[in-house]
């Protein structure tokens, strides 16, 4: 069962140079991107029913920007994401530090419990939060931004374990001799933490924060269960728009959300690449 010598000069392991492999890759990328690209393209479509391309227009972006409900939802999403990110990053960093630094009884079950929010189906967490807030009589009708409290709490709960994973991965590569060197030179525990550990953790903290921000901004299911008529977030608003009617306005709103996510991801990647050696 020998092999024919290839005449096109491609080595036996250079799979990616083979035509059919490239075809599969191409087809997959087309499959993944075509719907999104089309959605973005059609947000500029001058047609109400949005089936055939009629012409270029920014009309629907205008509509989107003038849609008070949409703007309000957007502001809500940003506010929630901001607070969620701040608290999640702190909590996640604390967990990561605790797991990295200390041995303690019950560590394995604790680690398991900390990954529960990551693993659990979103719907289960959503209904759990709904049940919780209604059962403890979480006050409703609060003024902004306090009325976003329930959603924010829910977002923090599922975000901070993700941050913990990211920060922990960063800590795992820490050279403990740096810590010992600082102590050897006379630094106290606090000084070591402030001068050596926090600067080291920074890339992990930033990556974790960006992750938490994106998770919060994008979340639908859990927010769906913890939001009310006066506390609508951007994805929830888009959902109701989709259910109601499919107009290019929805496309415009979606494109805006995609753009924001892309910008954030790019920032994250740039930051990550700037710190390849540390």
């Amino acid at each position: 069962m020998g092999m024919r010598r290839r005449r096109d000069g491609i080595g036996p392991l250079e799979y990616t140079r083979r035509a059919w492999m490239r075809l599969i890759l191409l087809a997959t990328f087309v499959f993944l991107y075509a719907p999104i690209v089309t959605l973005v393209a059609f947000s500029f479509n001058d047609s109400r029913r949005n089936i055939v391309w009629r012409g270029f227009t920014l009309e629907y972006y205008e509509k989107a920007f003038n849609n008070a409900g949409l703007i309000e939802a957007f502001v809500n999403s940003l506010t929630i994401a901001f607070f969620s990110t701040v608290v999640s990053t702190v909590l996640g960093a604390l967990v990561a530090l605790k797991l990295w630094r200390f041995r303690f009884p019950g560590k394995a079950p604790y680690e398991g419990a900390m990954t529960l929010p990551i693993v659990i189906p979103e719907i289960c967490m959503g209904v759990a939060m709904l049940a919780f807030f209604s059962r403890i009589g979480w006050p409703s009708g609060l003024t902004w931004p306090f009325n976003l409290g329930a959603i924010t709490i829910a977002h923090i709960s599922f975000s901070f374990p993700f941050v913990a994973v990211v920060v922990r991965a960063r800590l795992a590569n820490f050279n403990r001799e740096q810590e010992e060197a600082a102590r050897d030179l006379g630094a106290t525990e606090w000084q070591v933490f402030r001068d050596i550990m926090i600067p080291y953790m920074k890339p992990g903290l930033v990556a974790g924060a960006l992750l938490a921000f994106t998770l919060s901004l994008d979340d639908f299911v859990i927010t769906f269960f913890t939001s009310g008529p006066d506390t609508v977030t951007f994805p929830v608003k888009v959902y109701s728009m989709v259910r109601f009617s499919v107009t290019p306005e929805v496309n415009a709103a979606s494109t805006i959300l995609i753009a924001i996510t892309l910008v954030l991801t790019t920032i994250a990647l740039v930051l990550q690449n700037r710190r390849t050696t540390d």
């Binding site: 050279n175 001799e177 740096q178 102590r183 050897d184 030179l185 006379g186 630094a187 080291y200 540390d278």
Partner: peptide, 29 residues
């Protein structure tokens, strides 16, 4: 504690703080 002893150590990996300049490293202690 180690930070109070009159001895200082050069570590095997050197443990030079990557986020500080040479000057800040030497001056840290």
């Amino acid at each position: 504690a180690p930070n109070r002893r009159p001895v200082n150590m050069v570590f095997q990996s050197y443990a030079v703080f990557p986020h500080m300049t040479v000057f800040d490293n030497v001056g840290y202690g």
